[in-house]
Design a protein around this nucleic acid. Sequence first.
DNA 1: TCGTGGACTGCAATCGAGTGCAGCCTGACG
DNA 2: CGTCAGGCTGCACTCGATTGCAGTCCACGA
Lengths: 342, 342
Amino acid sequence: MPAVQTPTLRDVAEAAGVHAATASRALNPATRGLVNADTARRVIKVAETLGYRPNPIARGLKTSRSGTVGLVIPDLTNPLFPPIVRGIEDVLEPAGYSGLIVNTDNDPGRERAQIELLRGRQVEGLIVATARVEHPLLQQLHREGVKMVMVNRRADGVDASSVTADDAEGVALAVQHLADLGHRRIAHLAGPQVTSTGVVRAKAFRASVRELGLDEDPALVRSCDFWSEEEGAKALRRLLDDGVEFTAIVAGNDLIALGCYDVFAELGITCPDDVSVVGFNDMPFIDKLRPPLTTVAVPHHQVGVEAARMLLEGLEEPDRPPRSVLLPLTLTVRGSTAPPRG
Amino acid sequence: MPAVQTPTLRDVAEAAGVHAATASRALNPATRGLVNADTARRVIKVAETLGYRPNPIARGLKTSRSGTVGLVIPDLTNPLFPPIVRGIEDVLEPAGYSGLIVNTDNDPGRERAQIELLRGRQVEGLIVATARVEHPLLQQLHREGVKMVMVNRRADGVDASSVTADDAEGVALAVQHLADLGHRRIAHLAGPQVTSTGVVRAKAFRASVRELGLDEDPALVRSCDFWSEEEGAKALRRLLDDGVEFTAIVAGNDLIALGCYDVFAELGITCPDDVSVVGFNDMPFIDKLRPPLTTVAVPHHQVGVEAARMLLEGLEEPDRPPRSVLLPLTLTVRGSTAPPRG
DNA sequence: TCGTGGACTGCAATCGAGTGCAGCCTGACG
DNA sequence: CGTCAGGCTGCACTCGATTGCAGTCCACGA
């Protein structure tokens, strides 16, 4: 709230000796052709010297565009999301849009409330990074014509645009890498099977194992209830308690891999000598662990960029059919993988 | 953009058989007393069944309040900030405000542009986490009466409200801890001396060393140009190249400590046997390093909460004088510190 | 019986910008 | 010299909600 009132369109018009309507047209590139070139120049000049800034609220009221989009994420604190958000903002900002971030904490009730809040704020579109496989709310929004793009996950029955990393390929890379090192009994600590990534990765794991002719033992695949270290540790402990033999682990994501590290420290298992581990995501600082984690690198920033672009496309051409992009992944080999002992 | 037009105040009024003005008053708790209780009830009921949501854009136009505040941070990708942002949002949201995040990348030009953008969007206040010591822009904004709260850092000549962690105390805790372990020659890899935290911590370091009667050697204090691993590594290498003797390091922050880890690995120095290290911030996952980093824990979430509260206070009572809160810190002792060898 | 006050409610203006329509003026053409 | 087209500009209304002001109606007291 500046002490000096910021000038309005009327002020500019008055100072330029024209009517507000003319000033409006002169300032808007799209309608500038309707006014005399000299007049337009004069108005623009005056607007500049007065430091005129159109009031987006007033503009929004008339045009029913808010210039904002909602970013729905589970938790900003999860290191996965900041790079995605940056990618999104990096595209949104030059286009004149701003992002409103809400955190759902993966709580469906909270998610509903937060999305309501966003709609109340008249966001023009949504970028959603929280889709569970089962997701009636999103289906409903989609039916109501809310523009949206889904990130990282896909929800059944919602044919909205989406941008995802090629999870199947990522898992294949990981399994291939371990197989190349000579591992034959590889365990998979899968993510929650209510998330689309969780199922896709687990399925891809099974497919890769089969394809490469490695040991297919159902006991080697465990799933975690959350994408967390605790759950990862729990799953690994169960695996060990059951006496299942394995020489390598493909973790559902880096957090789960971190849980493995905790168990290793606890039980005196050395990595990669006793067991190799591959993570997923390439979280920041994950390369600083001992040993540095071999993991599948996801181009998070790029994911955000693509998502924002797709949303903008959708806003500009409402009839454009939804499309999906699949971003390629790469395996970053570090110190947590080695040939099996003996 | 829902397919069914969302109902407006007029629709509600019409359905309830009253004038829009009456409906407005009935719906607003502050003015509800002006209308007949029965009427009010009826209007509220109708509003509910129609699913009426006041349009904040229209409301904002009339009340010249946007319900948004700007969050100015250097880079969301820096793990320091997400918890702060969450803390802020957690307070803002129940109060009916939303935060607009902008990243400045510590570039003054970009910062200026981003803040202009925020002001253009009619934010009611600013939470700024990027203050350099020298900061004409903030001074100007402050003079113009823009409400703001500064986080983590303070800028000279701007007597706006601020919330900071008690950096001096944190450094004192770190030095004390090392002294207790028996270290006498402690190095300090300080942060950039153009940031307020950088200077405060360096000054506190010198004071603590003096107070505890440890070796005061100017050669033991080096400063980095950025708060980064690379800079930390560079500073440590310089220190070693110069042949300066020391048994422990107080790093300006965790990133700088991470840089030390890199140099250790490079040169075969073992931590904490050869050298102890204390970090600052207690970044997420920093406890997963080998060895887990002893560091000063900053209550980031709390910092955000306090900042948001102070801003809201300022918005509600514009005449309230600025105030500053200093949050206490704690030392989290982990595996990177031990008594000096021999 | 009339006046007065209080409790409600409606009217109309307002916030700042955008836009359909009408009117002005000029220049060109018949 | 009259007419018409086209280029510009201004008028006035609109978006949706808020709010000062002016009623209206009823009850109560004088």
